[in-house]
Structure formats: C-alpha cells, structure tokens
C-alpha cells in the first residue's frame, strides 16, 4: 500500500459505514427483548423471530410473494427467452425499438407503472387481484430476464447452431440440444435476479394488492404503520440473508462483471 492512499482509504471506509451502518443497526436491534425497537438493545432474545412465525399474515403473504415471484418468473421466462433469442440472433427492422420497449419497465418509475397497471388491468379489464399482481410482476421481471439472457447469448457463436442443423437437427431440436445448454448459467442467473427484483418489490405491488391478497413487503409496510415492535427488524434480517445468499450464488454462476460490462 502506498502512503498517499490513506485519505482515500478513510473515504472508502466512510462510504461503507454509510451504506452498511443501517443494516448493521437493524440486525442488532432485531435481537431486542423488549416490545419497542431501540438501539442499542437492552439484551438478547429471539422472541421477535419467533413472532414472525406466529403472525399468520406474515406467513400468508410470504407464501403469496413466493408464488407470485415464481409463477411470474416462469411467465417472464416463457416470454423472455424467445425474445432474447430473437433480439440476439436476427437482424431485423425495429429491433432497437423492440429492445427499448422490452427494457422500458425498468426505466419507467415504478409508481407510474404500478398506477398504469392498476388503471388498466383492474379498473378497465376487471381482472382479479391475484391475476393483476402476477401480470405486474411478470412485467417487471421481463427486462431482467431479457437483458441477462441476451448478454449470455452475445457470447454464443451462432455458427454452432448452423453446425447442428447441417448435421441433421431441426430448428427446435437445435435450440434445446445446442443453444439452451450453453446459456444455462445465464438463464439461472436471470431467474435469480428477476426473483429478487420481484420478491422485494414494493411500488408495483402496492397498487396491485388488495383485500385478501398481499405480498410480504406490503404486509411489512402495513405492519410498521400499526406496530413499532422489532418484528420488522427480524424479517429484514431474514430477507437480507436470503438476498445475500442469492447474490452469492449469482456471483458464483457468472460473476457480476457480466452485468456491469457493455
């Protein structure tokens, strides 16, 4: 290490404290034995962690969140894989426009997208809340699916596909035997990232949930409005651990460089 870097090191440390500090504080306060969230805590207890499992709304909305994220993921894959393939494989008119269109849900403010979806899916077309929620989540996952899979396909030599065809494979056969196995890690990473995006989503869900149907983050929001006990801190810790675990898997699969390049 060079001497002159000391100032920079200090600066970096400050940034980390700023970023991680709140997470550390939340983690510590989640072990508070009392009924009010405070820092520093007055003891150590797993009471509020137990409470998560005792409040039925948390368990129920957790189930909804998982189902919506997984089903939405599946739908987004069914739409996204062919779209990513077409966008990477073929040169055609309007490709850039289509690309921008598919990525637009990330660019539009979530609150605008959420309101628009509510206005059309629920108010105009009268879809059931559950269906609306599912569609909303599919829409926000689609850009991540397409982007990640397309970048995985960018490294794929499409001559390989032609080679398979010249050896006697039909188009579909070629896709499943040759293309798919080579973008498998890309698809897995896409699924995990999209899952995180959907599972942690608030701004779309807040519009698309309603009586009887809610997601975990929305339930947490409601809970905080009424109670001030450390349950929320305990859930937050669990969600953080879950997110970190998924990110670790994604990193292992293809490295973050995959998403920052290009």
């Amino acid at each position: 290490m060079k001497e002159g870097n000391r100032g920079l090191s200090l600066y970096t440390l400050l940034v980390f404290v700023f970023l991680l500090g709140p997470l550390v504080i939340i983690s510590i306060t989640s072990f508070e034995p009392g009924t009010v969230l405070k820092f520093p805590p007055e003891g150590f207890s797993l009471r509020w962690y137990r409470n998560i499992f005792e409040v039925s709304m948390f368990m129920e909305t957790f189930k909804t969140s998982i189902i919506v994220s997984m089903l939405g993921n599946l739908l987004a894959l069914l739409l996204g894989v062919p779209a990513a393939y077409a966008l990477s494989r073929f040169e055609f008119r309007g490709r850039d426009t289509l690309n921008a269109l598919f990525l637009s849900p990330v660019l539009i403010p979530g609150i605008v997208l959420g309101f628009t979806l509510l206005r059309y899916l629920i108010v105009v077309y009268g879809l059931p809340i559950y269906a609306g929620l599912l569609i909303g989540h599919t829409v926000i996952m689609l850009p991540f699916i397409i982007r990640v899979i397309a970048s995985s396909l960018a490294n794929f030599d499409f001559a390989v596909e032609e080679a398979a065809q010249s050896l006697g494979a039909g188009r579909l056969e070629t896709f499943f035997k040759v293309v798919l196995p080579n973008i498998r890690s890309g698809i897995l990473a896409a699924v995990l990232i999209a899952f995180l995006e959907s599972f942690n989503n608030v701004d779309i869900s807040v519009f698309m949930t309603g009586p009887g149907v809610s997601t975990l983050p929305i339930q947490m929001l409601t809970y905080v409005q009424n109670y001030f006990d450390p349950t929320i801190a305990a859930i937050s810790v669990i969600l953080m651990v879950l997110t970190a675990a998924l990110m670790f898997i994604i990193e292992r699969l293809m490295g973050f460089a995959y998403f920052t390049k290009r």
């Binding site: 001559a159 080679a163 398979a164 494979a169």
Partner: peptide, 17 residues
C-alpha cells in the same frame, strides 16, 4: 438444411462447447 446430409466445416470450427 437438416435434410440435405451435407457436411459443413466452419471458419470458427463451431464445435458444441
């Protein structure tokens, strides 16, 4: 293509990775 039974050798080799 897949019904022609012609062998094709590519510049990039195009082996199945």
């Amino acid at each position: 293509v897949n019904k022609r039974n012609f062998g094709f050798v590519f510049q990039s080799y195009a082996l199945f990775p």
